[in-house]
Amino acid sequence: MKDNLKKKVVVSYDVPEDKRRTKIHKILKSYGQWVQYSVFECQLTETQYAKLRSRLHKLIKPDTDSIRFYFLCACCFDKIERIGGEQPRDETIFFA
């Protein structure tokens, strides 16, 4: 894949520790759109994805934390449908 092509990725995470979860949220926020409390939608180049994955991998505790990457084709990404619910607000106190 050429680096200028962007992958459509949904990233979800389950991290029980508040401090680590907040750090993960901040990292993901710099790469994509926060759509639910532990879910981001991202459009990443190959280089951006590699850097994001590396940063997250260094931060997590594999025995207790989980981060999942769901790759979507452009057609599927464009067909994402949302019903109800408010858009998340970035209230850092929620994650502290």
Rank of each mutant, 00 (worst) to 15 (best):
2 K>E: 12
3 D>H: 08
3 D>W: 13
5 L>Q: 15
7 K>A: 12
7 K>V: 08
7 K>M: 14
8 K>G: 04
8 K>Y: 10
9 V>E: 01
9 V>M: 08
10 V>Q: 06
10 V>L: 14
10 V>D: 07
11 V>G: 04
11 V>N: 04
11 V>W: 01
11 V>A: 07
11 V>P: 02
12 S>Y: 15
12 S>E: 02
13 Y>A: 09
13 Y>Q: 04
14 D>G: 10
15 V>A: 04
15 V>L: 08
15 V>Y: 01
15 V>R: 00
16 P>Q: 04
16 P>I: 00
16 P>R: 00
17 E>L: 07
17 E>C: 05
18 D>K: 15
18 D>E: 03
18 D>P: 05
19 K>A: 10
20 R>D: 03
21 R>T: 00
21 R>P: 00
22 T>N: 14
23 K>G: 00
23 K>Y: 04
23 K>H: 13
23 K>N: 09
23 K>L: 13
24 I>R: 06
24 I>H: 00
24 I>G: 09
25 H>D: 07
27 I>R: 05
27 I>M: 05
29 K>Y: 15
30 S>Y: 08
31 Y>A: 03
33 Q>T: 13
35 V>S: 11
37 Y>A: 08
37 Y>K: 13
37 Y>I: 10
39 V>I: 12
39 V>C: 10
40 F>E: 01
41 E>V: 08
41 E>W: 10
42 C>A: 10
43 Q>L: 00
44 L>C: 11
44 L>N: 02
45 T>H: 02
46 E>S: 03
46 E>T: 08
47 T>E: 07
48 Q>C: 08
49 Y>C: 04
50 A>I: 01
50 A>T: 07
52 L>H: 01
52 L>P: 01
52 L>M: 13
53 R>W: 10
53 R>P: 00
54 S>F: 06
55 R>L: 15
55 R>D: 13
55 R>M: 09
55 R>N: 11
55 R>T: 09
55 R>P: 05
57 H>S: 12
57 H>R: 13
58 K>G: 11
58 K>A: 12
58 K>C: 06
60 I>W: 12
60 I>F: 15
61 K>W: 06
61 K>R: 12
62 P>M: 03
63 D>L: 14
64 T>A: 14
65 D>M: 04
66 S>K: 12
67 I>Q: 11
67 I>K: 05
68 R>T: 09
68 R>V: 03
68 R>W: 05
69 F>A: 01
69 F>E: 03
70 Y>P: 08
70 Y>Q: 10
71 F>I: 14
71 F>K: 04
72 L>I: 02
73 C>K: 12
73 C>G: 15
73 C>A: 07
73 C>H: 10
74 A>T: 14
74 A>Q: 15
74 A>V: 11
74 A>F: 11
75 C>E: 14
76 C>Q: 07
77 F>Q: 02
77 F>M: 00
78 D>W: 07
79 K>L: 13
79 K>T: 07
80 I>V: 09
82 R>L: 04
83 I>M: 05
84 G>R: 02
84 G>E: 03
85 G>Q: 03
85 G>L: 01
87 Q>L: 08
87 Q>C: 02
87 Q>G: 06
88 P>R: 01
88 P>L: 01
88 P>F: 03
88 P>K: 08
88 P>M: 00
89 R>W: 10
91 E>I: 14
91 E>N: 10
94 F>R: 10
94 F>I: 14
94 F>P: 02
94 F>G: 05
95 F>L: 12
95 F>Q: 10
96 A>Q: 12
